Amino acid sequence: MNSETCICKLNDIRADYCITQQEISDATGISIRTIISIEKGHRLPTLLSAMRIANYLSIPVEQLFEYKSDIVPVTALGEICHE
């Protein structure tokens, strides 16, 4: 069984930028309740919400997340298959 985790790093990034939850909510149209829920790890943002937040912070959307997996990348599989 493969193991995967995805964490939204909004709380840390927001703190680095000295931006309040309310400022992100106002700028993106995402409710403050949703912002809080994302930061507490109760939910992940939708793709559209993540893109809005990343756009507001002027960062790549990938920077909002930490993804860990034990799935073997296809490039590694390709190297094994071509032996």
Rank of each mutant, 00 (worst) to 15 (best):
D70C: 07
D26A: 11
V72N: 02
L64W: 06
I30R: 05
M51I: 12
I7S: 10
K9M: 09
S37E: 03
R33S: 07
Q22H: 10
R33C: 01
L48V: 11
E83R: 14
L57C: 03
V74E: 12
E4G: 07
R33P: 00
C81H: 15
I19N: 05
I7M: 09
V72Q: 09
E23A: 11
V74C: 10
I53P: 07
I19W: 02
D16H: 11
K40L: 08
T20Q: 07
I53A: 01
E23W: 03
A54M: 07
A27N: 09
L57F: 03
T46F: 14
P60D: 11
G78C: 09
F65T: 13
N55R: 12
Q22A: 10
R43Q: 14
I24V: 14
K40C: 10
P73S: 13
C6P: 08
L10N: 02
H82M: 09
A76V: 09
V72F: 00
I53D: 08
E4N: 11
L64Y: 03
L10G: 02
S58R: 15
E39M: 04
K40F: 00
A50S: 12
E39W: 01
T34R: 00
P60V: 05
E4R: 10
T28N: 03
V74N: 12
S3P: 04
C18S: 14
E83Q: 13
E62P: 08
Y56D: 03
